[in-house]
Design a protein around this nucleic acid. Sequence first.
DNA 1: CTACGGGCATGACACATGTCATGGACGCGG
DNA 2: CCGCGTCCATGACATGTGTCATGCCCGTAG
Lengths: 200, 200
Amino acid sequence: MIRVLLADDEGMIRSALAALLRLEADIEIVAECADGAEAVAAAERLRPDVCLLDLEMPQLDGVQVTERLNRTVATRCVIVTRHARPGVLRRALASGAAGFLPKSRGADEVASVIRRVAAGGRYIDPELAADALSDERSPLTDRELDVLRAGRHGETTRQIARTLSLAPGTVRNHVSAVLGKLSVGTRQQAVLLAEERGWI
Amino acid sequence: MIRVLLADDEGMIRSALAALLRLEADIEIVAECADGAEAVAAAERLRPDVCLLDLEMPQLDGVQVTERLNRTVATRCVIVTRHARPGVLRRALASGAAGFLPKSRGADEVASVIRRVAAGGRYIDPELAADALSDERSPLTDRELDVLRAGRHGETTRQIARTLSLAPGTVRNHVSAVLGKLSVGTRQQAVLLAEERGWI
DNA sequence: CTACGGGCATGACACATGTCATGGACGCGG
DNA sequence: CCGCGTCCATGACATGTGTCATGCCCGTAG
């Protein structure tokens, strides 16, 4: 019997997957969690064999949950996400995830991925793995990413400067470098692109 | 037997719901669609009793699909969405939807909503309906919303002006009015807020 | 009719933003 | 050691953006 923890902030998909997985004879759902913090707590208490984690969750995202659990519990994590990009996959694997499944795939694949991972194997969505091989890593420097993150929600230059303890001019310079590298004209477009590609 | 069309661009939730609904004795899934255009075409061909439509879809969103179908086919539409806000609910009802269900609700409610709607009733998520009664309508004028939409992805003032055939100064004026009404400092924050509330 | 108010459009002005050239810190290979 | 390249930080300058006062159009109340 494979003991599975399920975490997804979207109630409908969480309960739908739970209902489907309960139909499988060899799978037992031991917990359903709505956010990352809850998932960590439940996993440490219940020690499931496999954790199926949504990437986008409040408190802690799937990658952060995987990082924590890899330190404390002998469980294998599968990360599931809407936005499946090479950059996201890279982050997921770096965190120690044993599996990566885009939500564009059918629900019927979930059970087989869980079985494979529980047996000690890994599962990476094949199509996405191919993309990730043709490696297009972020051309941005660490500092440039910092600035982009700090300005993600339309914060003004001055606010970003204060957040990072920089002169406003420096922030503008970094932003300018980013715009040049990404060939876009405004911050907001740069943010959208970087989010799209999983760089921030 | 209730004949149901299912449309959602996210494969996993679409197939999961389909699998669950197939377990219901009185429900038959006659089509699964991955975008709005496909949903319209299938609905016009198959004439299902109920259409379960995701709001966020490529091509046509759930509201647009509902509008079209209400002109051509005798079917009842239920709109399902992640971002359940009063503004979104209002748009959905205006388009003629018979039901509105946030994705935060459990998958087990879906079947009962379908039955109720198929029987000629309506279903509105109770919690959200309460919010919508404490009517917080958009304080923005039509033109201001146009400008906001045109600048949604970080377009420059000049581009927005060209899109709407306006002088750049006019665009700036509308933007300024929006920022004032929403009490925010930048366009991007205004866009985020308006998207949040379902105004654009 | 006329006065009034709201939405739309515009231009002038102050300020924030993006661009550019420059300099310092650090690591690497000749 | 020295030159080279990269990243980070900064200030001056041009351009774009937000604010404001103004005028037009139109529907409505007096």
